[in-house]
Write a protein that binds this DNA or RNA. Structure first.
Lengths: 317, 317
DNA sequence: CCGTTGTGTGAGTATTTGCCCATACCACAA
DNA sequence: TTGTGGTATGGGCAAATACTCACACAACGG
């Protein structure tokens, strides 16, 4: 037999072995018997068929596309974790799907036996996620708020969810009894140096994992809607190039924190270090796209939970 | 209420596990870790994905021998289309392999943008093929049954698959609410002239492509097993030289329809014209050999999906 | 003629997978 | 409340599979 012919018959045999294995459902032993070769050779034929790309596996489920996108996101943006949920084309909700996924991801972390420190940001998405969280007893863990929980009018900030989650999971909670944005840089320093606050800030820096929302800075930016900043402050942030806000701090399109403006007075903790903690953002939708892109570009996060449409646009851009 | 919802999320998870297993190449242990479940549950998820038909394996290598046989079949019997799949020597299944190939061939037709009329026969092989069909949305097409769908006892004929396929591909379906074999020639005429039936018969004559099974007339002929004809009628058909049956109509070894007997009462549509339609038979195995040979000889079909062993015998004879 | 190199094979072994079964869980009815 | 039937879970084990290694053999070059 001449050389090239040998190669084609080898692939032929490989295809036959692969067929018997994957389509006919034989074991490699049976294939070996039927083809009159040793089982090791049969195994080699099958794996040759796989490595030569003869065998194509396809998943007939919308989820497959999501997992694929998640993988691409991880690759492209160097994320440690990514999850993409299907987009419901008919819904305009900004929490549908991602909240469920976030709750599931939280549960996975909380199931850990070894104590973790769970950092929690703020926002509508996060609130929705925590509402979906099934109660589990996790007295070994600690949850720490990354933002202040006092609204400008003195009431508890509605979308600060530290108490909700602490209650759900029966863990010790560390809220930050502070305004989200102080009235001056000096006041912030004063507040941060309080004995009550310092341990919380230190704990937040030790977070094992943190879940944060990403706020946009459009006309109806949550920071503005909820009264934490004035319209003028919002406009100033936008003019300074701000595209998004994470735990109250504004960033430009490259994920670099803006200098000055309200950022000088944001009383939130820093986003935990991406070297020591998983920082998972939960965000989807066209309005948040620039913000998510910025967070990815600036490596502000190393985990992302989003939806199909958003993931596609992120990868296309 | 909760039942379908639970089922879909379960399938979602199964798809996820299947993806991680087959596409990402994780072991079941890794999947278990990533999904926060036990390995056993992961294993169940994966096998659920397989059993639900979410996972499709395709071999992208035309095995030379099979291609060669297919070509010879086309030449020798003047077929427009032939496909030969490998034979699993140890298996006695009459559908293994050919059903997959038939599903793939159907998919090729269904992908067409221009509307087609798809005629569908009946039988075990066809049923297996349609179960393997991946759901695709084809509202532009029409599927028409070539046989009645009422069993002698009044129930829906089990191997009438028009509803299964219509459901899978979301196309308009045209079943034939008739018995497969009428009690008399007169009854058949009466039934066929009904306003409900005539359009279906007309549509079936316009089929672009039709997939049919070939039934044998041995002791366990499907027509007899399923109770459409009596043992006496079966024997009579055999004595009159009948070797096979397509859409209920019996043919002799030259593919000529038998005169009289049950053929006078078969309420099925005619096999669509081989001049205007592709008529593809799906059949393999020694028991069906005479039938396939007859169908080829009588040019009842112009397409064939069979297996290696059957193709070889056909060509040798 | 001999050694080298690449390829294919079989044997043995570690890992992975499939399956059974005891148990836990949940919903529902008595 | 308790019992009951159906369902999901995880442990354990045997089968199946993947991997590593050593050897055989042919081609090639010195």
């Amino acid at each position: 037999m001449s050389k090239p012919e040998v190669t084609t018959t080898r692939l032929d045999d490989a295809a036959r072995a692969g067929w018997l294995y994957y389509v006919a459902g034989n074991t490699q032993d049976e294939i070996a018997a039927k083809l009159g070769i040793s089982r090791q050779s049969a195994q080699r034929m099958v794996s040759l068929a796989v490595s030569e790309g003869l065998v194509k596996v396809r998943l007939d489920h919308p989820i497959a596309r999501c997992l694929d996108l998640a993988e691409q996101l991880k690759q492209r943006f160097g994320l440690k974790m990514a999850e993409v949920v299907p987009t419901d084309p008919g819904s305009t909700s900004t929490t549908l799907g991602v909240a469920d996924a976030a709750a599931a991801e939280m549960t996975r972390w909380l199931k850990s036996e070894t104590p973790i420190v769970l950092g929690i940001g703020t926002g509508r998405t996060l609130k929705a996620a925590i509402e979906l969280l099934s109660p589990i007893e996790c007295p070994q863990h600690k949850v720490v708020s990354l933002t202040g929980n006092i609204a400008p009018d003195g009431s508890a900030a509605f979308y600060n969810v530290i108490f909700n989650i602490a209650d759900k999971i029966k863990a010790r909670s560390f809220p930050m009894p502070l305004p989200v944005i102080a009235s001056s840089p000096e006041e912030r320093e004063l507040l941060h140096s309080q004995a009550m606050i310092r341990p919380v800030l230190e704990l937040s820096a030790q977070a094992t994992v943190a879940f944060v929302g990403i706020g946009d800075l459009s006309e109806d930016a949550p920071l503005f809607i909820d009264g934490f900043i004035s319209r003028e402050e919002l406009l100033a942030l936008r003019q300074a190039g701000g595209v998004c806000e994470i735990v109250g701090r504004a960033f430009d399109r490259n994920g670099v924190p803006l200098k000055g403006l309200t950022n000088d007075r944001v009383a939130s903790a820093q986003i935990p270090s991406r070297d020591t903690a998983m920082v998972i953002a939960i965000a989807k939708g066209p309005k948040k796209l620039p913000g998510i892109a910025a967070a990815l570009k600036g490596s502000l996060i190393n985990g992302l939970i989003t939806d199909e449409a958003t993931a596609e646009t992120l990868l296309a851009g």
